[in-house]
Design a protein around this nucleic acid. Sequence first.
DNA 1: GACAAACATCGACGAATGTCGATGTAGCAG
DNA 2: CTGCTACATCGACATTCGTCGATGTTTGTC
Lengths: 111, 111
Amino acid sequence: MARRTLTVDPVACCSPVRAETLDEAAAETLARSFAALSDPIRLRLLSHIASAGDEVCACDLVTMSGRSQPTVSHHMKLLFDAGLVTRDKRGLWVWYRAVPERLDALRTALA
Amino acid sequence: MARRTLTVDPVACCSPVRAETLDEAAAETLARSFAALSDPIRLRLLSHIASAGDEVCACDLVTMSGRSQPTVSHHMKLLFDAGLVTRDKRGLWVWYRAVPERLDALRTALA
DNA sequence: GACAAACATCGACGAATGTCGATGTAGCAG
DNA sequence: CTGCTACATCGACATTCGTCGATGTTTGTC
């Protein structure tokens, strides 16, 4: 059986905000996703990965963001838990990849 | 000339996150908008107004959200400053209306 | 085995946020 | 002018968040 984690469903989420009033559970889920996008550093990290169109090494993110390694690790964990990126550890390096389906799901929620 | 306020431009914002890495200024602007959507109460308030398709009285929002009047007023100010709703005071009542162009702008930013 | 490198976790700190009671302000009704 | 109503602002509080140095863990190299 599929293991239940704390991460959100990559695709499904909530009905569009303009369709009907969100119920409390849907609002909670959506809010958590948007909270992942509510920090400029995280937005730049995500944008850097998403625009690359390919895998990005975590080591690049530290230099690119200008933050310390623990801080970047913290932000990437939030993006990962929000389902916005995937993480793939190979050897010493960790490679991140954007999850376009998740971005599309959030776009749908704003419809 | 148009008065410059603290509110954001209703339409224009940032290039899509998948197009190229956001610069710091764009990331700051976008993050502030998503921060307005990062609270479940605000999402329900906005969804209630947006799905109404018409004006909504502030008095309805208090009962609907289950929060105190000052708290609702605080949240509505954030939504207003984010350009997601307009405010129209007529007599004693304040009427809110959703700004679909702003929601569309955020959807575009997630493209 | 010992050592180094990449990343995660921990602990602590200041700053920002959500919340509400108390109070201020603007607009009606008498 | 007096009161009442709807909403905004203020002050205070607990909680959450962003940050980084120190430390832990995993992996590869020798």
